[in-house]
Design a protein around this nucleic acid. Structure first.
Lengths: 339, 339
DNA sequence: ACTGGCACTCAACGTCCCGGAGTGCCAGAA
DNA sequence: TTCTGGCACTCCGGGACGTTGAGTGCCAGT
């Protein structure tokens, strides 16, 4: 049904359209690509491609543009991976050096990805399921506020302020000692279990304070840092074209909603964990992303559930973008593992 | 030179133009505002206002629009503060409750401000110059990486990863003890002084490790948390109008550069610390903000140097925006002080 | 199975024209 | 003096119209 030449034609249409952003006609096609046939033949092929739903007409006498289905075929079967340029490789290597904490790593990564792809980059914080607790600190901030800080072996630091009217420094010290004794070396899951019995140890006088602290610690333990997403390269959205209100605003709004981004990343990574996933236009559930494509990869040592990727117009240079996302995902994974 | 009526006319022009976004003519002016004079009279006044540089013509037969100078006069002498609505007050009160840490406070504040003003809100992290050190923790992450965590009395938690090949747990413990002994209760400035002599205490064998750690701590101490800026409400930029590439992209780009934002906030707050500052269009040094206004206020107990505010088109509802920024700055100040 | 040719379509662009909102100015009224 | 009504003038915006050219679909011929 689709012989090799028709695939070639589709490929040519996609690449031409991506680079020119304008519908591409049969004549220009044969000229710019070494197709050894006449425009008329190409037109026939295009008619078939259109019937199969891979390309469309904006209007009768305009060139063709790929449909989402067309991009899909292109990505799945036609696209050849475009290797990164040497400067890009160097940028990746050098950009990460000197990162001082997790926040810094994420920030640098997402900026780098945005810069390389010239698109909006998003990145979920790394999962730390395998991490164990290294230290827990309780700090009195004022007469009725206490700060809990929890440090894990992966270097993540979680904090939380607690309203704690009438606590005593002495009780805080006891709690600190006991909690550290109990929790150090444990995984978050184990820790949550162990905490359930702890309250019994305290006199009724100290009960309410202890209960608050324990509740606070449990909340921290339940907090998934990978529920945070960082965004960079928003200015690149202006590449979407001049039709502002319609195409850009919904995407901008979605980008400010962590929840939406998490769902997008989650959906995409769930599909084929450990590898690159591409979501094209209508393949996205979220209606704000109907004319937007996602290129997403999981990253992390355990083939983990954290994702990172790029948001851009369906009209996107898929080969380059895919190469960049994959390269960076791998590099960050290694970086997080080795340290 | 400018009698009361002319000021009234300018006021009417500004408010009308802000609400309609279209040049306003003499006839519409007298109709929509209770000016007790004829359009012809208003025209004469407008001619004067134009000669003085407060308003302009887009073209010969169009209405008038305010110049930056006109907005300036409006803000300085004419505008009456528009009090916040009851729902807005309630939103401010309730939005902050339940904030769990500084990050959370900043996030909530900046979102709230964006929501109320329907504009882009920016907020510098609070300064903590008066804070003292409460705890310092050293955590070994792997055989050659150590995490330093520094907690201050204001509840800020700073962290930093260190490459530290061949450290021993024992040395880490000694360092931890000594550092805490030395630093707890000190201000960052004092702490930096005290650290200078510490290195002497360690044997040559441990020197390099100790030096690295001390250097790391110094770096943390030198890190000013108020050098971070949080942004919210970027989608509101689409209100700028449909001319995308020209007006929005530069602002978007600037919003991703912490440095630029810091300079903007710094410039504005330096001018009249402790109160509201408005920068209109060309009054901004940064050329990306030539058609943008800033409404900024300092906030914090010590009339501190941290700023928060709103970025929007010069065509902006100044009275409302100013009221909102001031209200939120005051509220956050109180919230940070009381806890 | 491909090609050249031909009639057809239709967005984009330029031109022309007109209506209307708005101005500036002036002579007369308050 | 200060305001007003009147009037000629300007010029943007939008609709109508014709032209252009890229592109298509189809068919007969190789």
């Amino acid at each position: 049904m689709l012989d090799d030449r028709k695939l070639d034609v589709l490929k040519a249409i996609v690449t031409d359209y991506v680079s020119s952003k304008e519908p591409v006609g049969s004549k220009a096609l044969v000229e710019r690509h070494g197709l050894r046939v006449s425009p008329a033949t190409v037109r026939n092929d295009m008619a078939v491609l259109e019937e199969e739903g891979y390309i469309t007409h904006p209007h009768t006498s305009a060139g063709r543009i790929p449909t989402d289905k067309g991009y899909r075929l292109f990505v799945d079967r036609i696209a050849t991976v475009k290797p990164l340029s040497a400067p890009e490789r160097r940028a990746i290597m050098s950009f990460m050096n000197g990162a001082v904490d997790i926040d810094d790593i994420v920030t640098r990564t997402v900026r780098l990805l945005a810069q390389i792809t010239h698109q909006v980059a998003i990145m979920q914080y790394p999962v730390v399921s395998s991490a164990s607790i290294r230290h827990l600190e309780l700090v009195g901030l004022s007469t009725d506020r206490v700060l809990i800080v929890l440090i894990t072996s992966s270097g993540s630091v979680e904090q939380r302020t607690l309203e704690l009217p009438g606590y005593t420094e002495e009780l805080l010290m006891r709690l600190r000692g006991r909690l550290n004794q109990l929790l150090i070396g444990r995984t978050p899951a184990e820790a949550a279990d162990l905490l359930s019995g702890l309250l019994e140890e305290f006199e009724s006088m100290d009960r309410s304070t202890a209960a608050s602290v324990i509740a606070g610690v449990l909340e921290i333990l339940a907090t998934d840092p990978s529920a945070r997403v960082m965004v960079a390269g928003v200015p690149n959205l202006t590449r979407y074209g001049p039709n502002l209100q319609t195409s850009i605003q919904p995407v901008l709004e979605a980008l400010e909603e962590q929840v939406v981004l998490l769902r997008l990343l989650g959906d995409a990574t769930a599909e084929s964990p450990g590898d690159l996933t591409v979501r094209i236009g209508s393949e996205n559930a979220d209606e704000n992303f109907q004319s937007t494509s996602l290129v997403v990869s999981t990253y992390g040592d355990d083939g983990g559930r954290s994702g990172l990727g790029v948001v851009g117009p369906t009209l996107m240079d898929y080969p380059s973008t895919m190469a960049a996302v994959r390269a960076i995902a791998r590099y960050v994974g290694r970086f997080l593992a080795e340290g």
